[in-house]
Design a protein around this nucleic acid. Structure first.
Lengths: 149, 149
DNA sequence: TATTGTTATACTCTATAACTATA
DNA sequence: TATAGTTATAGAGTATAACAATA
Protein backbone atom coordinates (compact mmCIF):
# COMPACT_ATOMS: atom_id res chain seq x y z
CA UNK A 1 0.00 0.00 0.00
CA UNK A 2 2.76 2.40 -0.92
CA UNK A 3 0.86 5.39 -2.25
CA UNK A 4 -1.67 3.08 -3.88
CA UNK A 5 -4.87 5.08 -3.77
CA UNK A 6 -3.47 7.74 -1.54
CA UNK A 7 -6.59 9.60 -0.49
CA UNK A 8 -5.76 12.56 -2.73
CA UNK A 9 -8.00 14.07 -5.35
CA UNK A 10 -7.68 12.27 -8.68
CA UNK A 11 -5.45 13.85 -11.30
CA UNK A 12 -8.41 14.59 -13.56
CA UNK A 13 -9.87 16.92 -10.94
CA UNK A 14 -6.68 18.84 -10.31
CA UNK A 15 -6.80 22.50 -11.32
CA UNK A 16 -3.17 22.36 -12.44
CA UNK A 17 -3.90 19.42 -14.72
CA UNK A 18 -7.02 21.05 -16.10
CA UNK A 19 -5.07 24.22 -16.81
CA UNK A 20 -2.54 22.25 -18.86
CA UNK A 21 -5.30 20.56 -20.87
CA UNK A 22 -7.19 23.79 -21.53
CA UNK A 23 -3.99 25.70 -22.15
CA UNK A 24 -2.83 23.15 -24.69
CA UNK A 25 -6.12 23.27 -26.56
CA UNK A 26 -6.11 27.06 -26.70
CA UNK A 27 -2.44 27.10 -27.68
CA UNK A 28 -3.40 24.85 -30.60
CA UNK A 29 -6.04 27.36 -31.63
CA UNK A 30 -3.52 30.20 -31.49
CA UNK A 31 -0.99 28.12 -33.41
CA UNK A 32 -3.44 27.43 -36.21
CA UNK A 33 -4.39 31.06 -36.43
CA UNK A 34 -0.78 32.28 -36.38
CA UNK A 35 0.38 29.83 -39.04
CA UNK A 36 -0.64 32.23 -41.81
CA UNK A 37 1.74 34.84 -40.37
CA UNK A 38 4.52 32.23 -39.97
CA UNK A 39 4.54 32.71 -36.22
CA UNK A 40 4.17 30.34 -33.27
CA UNK A 41 2.62 30.88 -29.84
CA UNK A 42 6.16 31.31 -28.49
CA UNK A 43 6.78 34.22 -30.85
CA UNK A 44 3.57 35.79 -29.61
CA UNK A 45 4.55 35.15 -26.00
CA UNK A 46 7.92 36.81 -26.48
CA UNK A 47 6.36 39.78 -28.26
CA UNK A 48 3.91 40.21 -25.41
CA UNK A 49 6.47 39.93 -22.63
CA UNK A 50 8.55 42.63 -24.32
CA UNK A 51 5.62 44.89 -25.15
CA UNK A 52 4.32 44.65 -21.58
CA UNK A 53 7.73 45.61 -20.21
CA UNK A 54 8.30 42.34 -18.33
CA UNK A 55 11.33 41.57 -20.48
CA UNK A 56 13.75 44.01 -22.06
CA UNK A 57 16.63 41.70 -23.00
CA UNK A 58 16.82 38.23 -24.54
CA UNK A 59 18.03 36.88 -21.22
CA UNK A 60 14.87 38.19 -19.55
CA UNK A 61 12.77 36.41 -22.13
CA UNK A 62 14.61 33.12 -21.63
CA UNK A 63 14.11 33.16 -17.87
CA UNK A 64 10.51 34.35 -17.99
CA UNK A 65 9.42 31.85 -20.60
CA UNK A 66 11.65 29.07 -19.27
CA UNK A 67 13.26 28.39 -22.62
CA UNK A 68 16.92 28.14 -23.57
CA UNK A 69 18.83 31.29 -24.58
CA UNK A 70 19.57 29.73 -27.94
CA UNK A 71 15.87 29.40 -28.66
CA UNK A 72 15.39 33.08 -27.84
CA UNK A 73 18.02 33.90 -30.44
CA UNK A 74 16.01 32.03 -33.05
CA UNK A 75 12.74 33.62 -32.00
CA UNK A 76 14.35 37.07 -32.01
CA UNK A 77 15.96 36.52 -35.43
CA UNK A 78 12.61 35.49 -36.81
CA UNK A 79 10.75 38.45 -35.32
CA UNK A 80 13.45 40.89 -36.39
CA UNK A 81 13.48 39.61 -39.98
CA UNK A 82 9.76 40.30 -40.15
CA UNK A 83 10.19 43.76 -38.69
CA UNK A 84 8.23 43.02 -35.53
CA UNK A 85 11.03 43.86 -33.08
CA UNK A 86 14.21 45.92 -33.02
CA UNK A 87 17.45 44.80 -31.40
CA UNK A 88 19.91 47.39 -30.16
CA UNK A 89 23.02 47.14 -28.01
CA UNK A 90 22.69 48.42 -24.48
CA UNK A 91 25.31 51.20 -24.22
CA UNK A 92 25.57 50.59 -20.49
CA UNK A 93 26.41 46.92 -20.99
CA UNK A 94 27.37 46.05 -24.50
CA UNK A 95 26.74 42.34 -23.99
CA UNK A 96 23.02 42.98 -23.79
CA UNK A 97 20.55 43.32 -26.60
CA UNK A 98 17.66 45.59 -25.79
CA UNK A 99 14.50 44.41 -27.50
CA UNK A 100 11.68 46.70 -28.49
CA UNK A 101 8.44 46.06 -30.32
CA UNK A 102 7.99 47.97 -33.58
CA UNK A 103 4.78 49.52 -34.85
CA UNK A 104 4.32 46.51 -37.09
CA UNK A 105 4.88 44.26 -34.09
CA UNK A 106 2.17 46.10 -32.20
CA UNK A 107 -0.23 45.67 -35.07
CA UNK A 108 0.46 41.91 -35.01
CA UNK A 109 -0.35 42.00 -31.30
CA UNK A 110 -3.57 43.89 -32.02
CA UNK A 111 -4.59 41.38 -34.63
CA UNK A 112 -3.83 38.50 -32.24
CA UNK A 113 -5.84 40.30 -29.59
CA UNK A 114 -8.80 40.37 -31.88
CA UNK A 115 -8.51 36.63 -32.47
CA UNK A 116 -8.12 36.12 -28.72
CA UNK A 117 -11.40 37.98 -28.30
CA UNK A 118 -13.18 35.28 -30.27
CA UNK A 119 -11.70 32.62 -28.00
CA UNK A 120 -12.69 34.69 -24.97
CA UNK A 121 -16.20 34.81 -26.36
CA UNK A 122 -16.29 31.02 -26.40
CA UNK A 123 -15.11 30.98 -22.80
CA UNK A 124 -17.73 33.52 -21.78
CA UNK A 125 -20.45 31.62 -23.58
CA UNK A 126 -19.41 28.40 -21.82
CA UNK A 127 -19.16 29.95 -18.39
CA UNK A 128 -21.84 32.58 -18.14
CA UNK A 129 -21.14 36.05 -16.76
CA UNK A 130 -20.35 35.20 -13.16
CA UNK A 131 -17.95 32.30 -13.72
CA UNK A 132 -16.31 34.20 -16.57
CA UNK A 133 -15.60 37.15 -14.32
CA UNK A 134 -14.31 34.84 -11.58
CA UNK A 135 -12.01 33.06 -14.01
CA UNK A 136 -10.62 36.40 -15.21
CA UNK A 137 -9.91 37.43 -11.64
CA UNK A 138 -8.05 34.24 -10.83
CA UNK A 139 -6.02 34.36 -14.04
CA UNK A 140 -5.01 37.96 -13.45
CA UNK A 141 -3.67 37.03 -10.04
CA UNK A 142 -1.77 34.01 -11.36
CA UNK A 143 -0.19 35.95 -14.22
CA UNK A 144 1.09 38.36 -11.61
CA UNK A 145 2.77 35.50 -9.78
CA UNK A 146 4.46 34.31 -12.96
CA UNK A 147 5.89 37.66 -13.94
CA UNK A 148 6.99 38.65 -10.47
CA UNK A 149 8.84 35.50 -9.52
CA UNK B 1 -7.00 52.82 -39.62
CA UNK B 2 -7.55 49.23 -40.63
CA UNK B 3 -7.83 47.48 -37.27
CA UNK B 4 -5.02 49.59 -35.91
CA UNK B 5 -5.83 49.92 -32.24
CA UNK B 6 -9.21 48.37 -32.60
CA UNK B 7 -10.81 49.19 -29.29
CA UNK B 8 -10.55 45.57 -28.08
CA UNK B 9 -8.92 44.44 -24.92
CA UNK B 10 -5.17 43.93 -25.36
CA UNK B 11 -3.95 40.38 -25.94
CA UNK B 12 -2.17 40.32 -22.60
CA UNK B 13 -5.47 40.70 -20.78
CA UNK B 14 -7.29 38.00 -22.69
CA UNK B 15 -8.32 35.00 -20.61
CA UNK B 16 -7.61 32.66 -23.52
CA UNK B 17 -4.08 34.01 -23.85
CA UNK B 18 -3.49 33.81 -20.12
CA UNK B 19 -4.72 30.24 -20.09
CA UNK B 20 -2.17 29.31 -22.76
CA UNK B 21 0.66 30.95 -20.83
CA UNK B 22 -0.29 29.35 -17.53
CA UNK B 23 -1.04 26.03 -19.17
CA UNK B 24 2.35 26.00 -20.87
CA UNK B 25 4.16 26.72 -17.62
CA UNK B 26 2.31 23.98 -15.79
CA UNK B 27 2.81 21.56 -18.67
CA UNK B 28 6.54 22.24 -18.33
CA UNK B 29 6.34 21.34 -14.67
CA UNK B 30 4.52 18.10 -15.47
CA UNK B 31 7.01 17.33 -18.23
CA UNK B 32 9.98 17.71 -15.87
CA UNK B 33 8.34 15.55 -13.27
CA UNK B 34 7.36 12.84 -15.76
CA UNK B 35 10.78 12.67 -17.38
CA UNK B 36 11.96 10.18 -14.77
CA UNK B 37 9.19 7.80 -15.82
CA UNK B 38 9.97 8.37 -19.53
CA UNK B 39 6.53 9.84 -20.09
CA UNK B 40 5.30 13.12 -21.54
CA UNK B 41 2.23 15.22 -20.69
CA UNK B 42 0.55 13.73 -23.77
CA UNK B 43 1.00 10.22 -22.38
CA UNK B 44 -0.60 11.39 -19.17
CA UNK B 45 -3.41 13.08 -21.06
CA UNK B 46 -4.16 9.93 -23.02
CA UNK B 47 -4.06 7.79 -19.88
CA UNK B 48 -6.49 10.14 -18.17
CA UNK B 49 -8.94 10.36 -21.09
CA UNK B 50 -9.09 6.56 -21.20
CA UNK B 51 -9.31 6.09 -17.46
CA UNK B 52 -12.10 8.67 -17.20
CA UNK B 53 -14.05 6.89 -19.92
CA UNK B 54 -13.98 9.80 -22.38
CA UNK B 55 -12.03 7.74 -24.88
CA UNK B 56 -12.17 4.00 -25.42
CA UNK B 57 -10.44 3.67 -28.79
CA UNK B 58 -7.36 5.25 -30.33
CA UNK B 59 -9.55 7.18 -32.69
CA UNK B 60 -11.38 8.72 -29.73
CA UNK B 61 -8.07 9.80 -28.25
CA UNK B 62 -6.94 11.40 -31.51
CA UNK B 63 -10.11 13.45 -31.84
CA UNK B 64 -10.31 14.42 -28.18
CA UNK B 65 -6.69 15.47 -27.91
CA UNK B 66 -6.56 16.92 -31.44
CA UNK B 67 -3.48 14.94 -32.44
CA UNK B 68 -2.88 12.77 -35.46
CA UNK B 69 -3.85 9.07 -35.35
CA UNK B 70 -0.25 8.15 -36.05
CA UNK B 71 0.86 9.93 -32.91
CA UNK B 72 -1.72 8.02 -30.90
CA UNK B 73 -0.18 4.79 -32.20
CA UNK B 74 3.19 5.89 -30.85
CA UNK B 75 1.76 6.98 -27.51
CA UNK B 76 -0.18 3.72 -27.21
CA UNK B 77 2.88 1.62 -28.14
CA UNK B 78 4.89 3.41 -25.49
CA UNK B 79 2.25 3.02 -22.80
CA UNK B 80 1.64 -0.61 -23.69
CA UNK B 81 5.35 -1.48 -23.58
CA UNK B 82 5.46 -0.12 -20.05
CA UNK B 83 2.38 -2.09 -19.03
CA UNK B 84 0.26 1.00 -18.38
CA UNK B 85 -2.51 0.15 -20.86
CA UNK B 86 -3.92 -2.93 -22.59
CA UNK B 87 -4.99 -3.03 -26.23
CA UNK B 88 -7.62 -5.52 -27.33
CA UNK B 89 -9.59 -5.88 -30.55
CA UNK B 90 -13.22 -4.89 -30.34
CA UNK B 91 -15.12 -8.08 -31.27
CA UNK B 92 -18.02 -5.98 -32.55
CA UNK B 93 -15.76 -4.05 -34.94
CA UNK B 94 -12.42 -5.65 -35.47
CA UNK B 95 -10.87 -2.46 -36.84
CA UNK B 96 -11.02 -0.90 -33.39
CA UNK B 97 -8.57 -1.25 -30.57
CA UNK B 98 -10.19 -0.96 -27.19
CA UNK B 99 -7.83 0.68 -24.73
CA UNK B 100 -7.93 0.05 -21.01
CA UNK B 101 -5.76 1.29 -18.19
CA UNK B 102 -3.95 -1.40 -16.21
CA UNK B 103 -3.40 -1.45 -12.46
CA UNK B 104 0.11 -0.18 -13.06
CA UNK B 105 -1.33 2.57 -15.24
CA UNK B 106 -3.64 3.60 -12.44
CA UNK B 107 -0.76 3.76 -10.01
CA UNK B 108 1.08 6.08 -12.43
CA UNK B 109 -2.04 8.25 -12.48
CA UNK B 110 -2.14 8.23 -8.69
CA UNK B 111 1.47 9.29 -8.49
CA UNK B 112 0.88 12.05 -11.02
CA UNK B 113 -2.14 13.11 -8.98
CA UNK B 114 0.02 13.50 -5.95
CA UNK B 115 2.45 15.68 -7.90
CA UNK B 116 -0.50 17.66 -9.26
CA UNK B 117 -1.55 18.26 -5.66
CA UNK B 118 1.70 20.13 -5.03
CA UNK B 119 1.02 22.34 -8.06
CA UNK B 120 -2.55 22.86 -6.85
CA UNK B 121 -1.12 23.93 -3.52
CA UNK B 122 0.90 26.62 -5.26
CA UNK B 123 -2.23 27.80 -7.04
CA UNK B 124 -4.20 27.87 -3.79
CA UNK B 125 -1.45 29.74 -2.04
CA UNK B 126 -1.35 32.32 -4.83
CA UNK B 127 -5.09 32.77 -5.01
CA UNK B 128 -6.44 32.43 -1.52
CA UNK B 129 -9.47 30.28 -0.72
CA UNK B 130 -12.16 32.22 -2.57
CA UNK B 131 -10.39 32.75 -5.91
CA UNK B 132 -9.09 29.18 -5.76
CA UNK B 133 -12.62 27.84 -5.42
CA UNK B 134 -13.86 30.10 -8.18
CA UNK B 135 -11.07 28.97 -10.51
CA UNK B 136 -11.90 25.33 -9.82
CA UNK B 137 -15.55 25.96 -10.66
CA UNK B 138 -14.74 27.64 -13.96
CA UNK B 139 -12.24 24.94 -14.96
CA UNK B 140 -14.71 22.16 -14.20
CA UNK B 141 -17.24 23.77 -16.49
CA UNK B 142 -14.72 24.28 -19.28
CA UNK B 143 -13.44 20.70 -19.10
CA UNK B 144 -17.02 19.60 -19.57
CA UNK B 145 -17.23 21.63 -22.75
CA UNK B 146 -14.05 20.05 -24.11
CA UNK B 147 -15.09 16.47 -23.51
CA UNK B 148 -18.65 16.90 -24.70
CA UNK B 149 -17.91 18.62 -27.99
C1' DT C 1 -16.37 3.44 -50.30
C1' DA C 2 -15.44 4.96 -45.39
C1' DT C 3 -13.29 3.83 -41.03
C1' DT C 4 -9.48 2.39 -37.89
C1' DG C 5 -5.12 1.67 -37.22
C1' DT C 6 -0.21 1.24 -38.81
C1' DT C 7 4.25 2.33 -41.03
C1' DA C 8 7.65 5.18 -43.37
C1' DT C 9 9.21 9.51 -43.85
C1' DA C 10 10.23 14.19 -43.15
C1' DC C 11 9.86 18.39 -40.79
C1' DT C 12 9.52 21.58 -36.78
C1' DC C 13 10.75 22.70 -32.33
C1' DT C 14 13.92 22.81 -28.69
C1' DA C 15 17.93 21.80 -25.82
C1' DT C 16 23.03 21.01 -25.14
C1' DA C 17 27.55 22.19 -25.83
C1' DA C 18 31.15 24.89 -27.53
C1' DC C 19 32.24 29.50 -28.66
C1' DT C 20 32.67 34.96 -28.82
C1' DA C 21 32.38 39.25 -26.64
C1' DT C 22 31.97 41.80 -23.01
C1' DA C 23 32.24 42.75 -17.96
C1' DT D 1 35.62 34.31 -13.63
C1' DA D 2 30.72 35.27 -14.80
C1' DT D 3 27.27 37.07 -18.00
C1' DA D 4 24.83 37.82 -22.63
C1' DG D 5 24.37 36.26 -26.79
C1' DT D 6 25.48 33.21 -30.79
C1' DT D 7 26.35 29.04 -33.61
C1' DA D 8 26.50 24.15 -34.62
C1' DT D 9 24.61 20.03 -33.72
C1' DA D 10 21.60 16.54 -32.27
C1' DG D 11 17.35 14.89 -30.30
C1' DA D 12 12.46 14.81 -29.30
C1' DG D 13 7.89 15.41 -30.92
C1' DT D 14 4.67 15.58 -34.40
C1' DA D 15 2.33 15.59 -38.89
C1' DT D 16 1.66 13.84 -43.74
C1' DA D 17 1.15 10.38 -46.87
C1' DA D 18 0.80 5.76 -48.33
C1' DC D 19 -0.89 1.52 -46.79
C1' DA D 20 -3.56 -2.71 -44.65
C1' DA D 21 -7.49 -4.51 -42.71
C1' DT D 22 -12.18 -4.32 -41.78
C1' DA D 23 -16.77 -2.63 -42.36
Amino acid sequence: MAGKSGGERPLAESSAFRLTVLGTHLANDFAEHLRAAELTPKHLGMLTMVEQGFATTQDDVARLMRVSPSLVVRLADHLEQRGLIDRSRDPANRRRHIISVTARGRSVLDEAGSYAATLDAWLAESLGPRLDRELAGALARLMGRLTEG
